[in-house]
């Protein structure tokens, strides 16, 4: 139990700019018409904790000045190294990749090319896979897209790449964390799942049966989500937790599923110890995160902010069925 100061990362701030991603809406367009003003679009990197030498996912969100979100289809990323914070250089071309649209869970994946959508209709980010950065420092991505109604776009965004990951990463041993479960005697319900503070009950008790320590000790694969559905700053925690719950119902025979609430006491800024062990580094708390831990106790994959449940499902299906 710690009392911590929160400094949200730039990536979280950028995610926050992606309007209205908290929860799955009923869609349907509603009564609000899009503002027919200009199509000034800005891009922001949504990836967290990028580092050198390992293929990683790279996410970008794009929003127009009238708060519509660029959605659907594919866009293209071209990366360039621009030196360090201390010594900038002329951009040196790096890898390139196509990026596919990843919808916020519960929103449509759409078809056709990129276009601007109202947040109540669609919202998400674009993801390229397997991007490897060969140097630490400040990088730049140029995003090119032909956005229906807005025309061809070429957008720039900067981001940092570290020498090493700051947060637990693939290839590392999972921390044997003794997180709260529904059987914990010393934890208020809201410290197990913040949604219990509104309903008085844990909405997804199946995600609070296991500790990471027990899963690792028993050699069980585990999918672990760190998120605070109620007190989520990044706006993605609710749908992400719901998506993990949906996966837990389909793949209960492949892995154990664990939701770790971030806050023990939001009002007094007390973070759960288990969350701090995994997602609090250098005075920097980020969420949501999803980690896939293999039967040997090694972290096999991780996803920050938004992700495609189908992609996680593919990785879960690689595990043999458990007895």
């Amino acid at each position: 139990m710690k009392r911590l100061r929160l400094l949200f990362t730039a990536s979280l701030l950028s995610l926050a700019a992606l309007a209205s991603a908290c929860a799955s809406s009923g869609g349907g367009g509603g009564s609000v018409e899009p503002t027919p003003s200009g199509s000034n679009i800005a891009a922001e990197v949504a990836s967290i904790d990028l580092y050198v030498g390992s293929p990683q996912r790279f996410l970008v969100g794009m929003l127009s000045a009238d708060r519509r979100v660029v959605t659907f289809g594919k866009v293209h990323f071209a990366f360039a190294y621009t030196g360090t914070a201390e010594a900038a250089t002329a951009p040196q071309p790096g890898p390139e990749a196509d990026a596919a649209y990843v919808p916020t869970p519960g929103t449509p994946s759409g078809s056709g090319g990129p276009r601007l959508s109202l947040p109540s209709d669609a919202r998400g980010v674009y993801q390229a896979e397997g991007v490897t950065f060969d140097r630490a420092g400040i990088w730049q991505v140029t995003i090119t897209a032909d956005v229906q109604g807005a025309g061809p776009q070429s957008l720039l965004a900067n981001f940092a790449v570290g020498e090493q990951p700051s947060y637990p990463a693939p290839g590392q041993r999972a921390l044997p964390t003794d997180n709260h479960t529904i059987h914990s005697k010393d934890a208020p319900l809201g410290a197990i799942d913040s949604r219990a503070e509104t309903t008085g009950k844990i909405p997804d008790p199946g995600l609070h049966e296991w500790t990471i320590a027990k899963a690792v000790a028993e050699g069980r694969p585990a999918l672990v989500v760190f998120a605070t559905p109620v007190y989520c700053i990044s706006q993605f925690c609710g749908p992400v937790t719901n998506a993990v719950e949906a996966l837990s119902k389909r793949y209960a025979d492949r892995a154990v599923f664990i939701h770790i609430e971030i806050w023990r006491d939001y009002q007094n800024q007390m973070v759960n110890k288990a969350a701090a062990e995994w997602v609090y580094r250098n005075n920097d708390l980020t969420e949501p995160w999803v980690f896939l831990i293999g039967p040997s106790g090694t972290i096999l994959d991780r996803w920050g902010s938004l992700w495609d449940p189908k992609e996680v499902a593919r990785e879960l299906r690689q595990f043999p069925k458990m007895p």
Partner: peptide, 18 residues
């Protein structure tokens, strides 16, 4: 009017509440 409620909330209210 569920759709209308969703439209107003997610397009005009939700982000500002954050």
């Amino acid at each position: 009017q569920l759709d209308q409620a969703n439209g107003i909330f997610y397009d005009r209210v939700h982000e500002e509440l954050h």
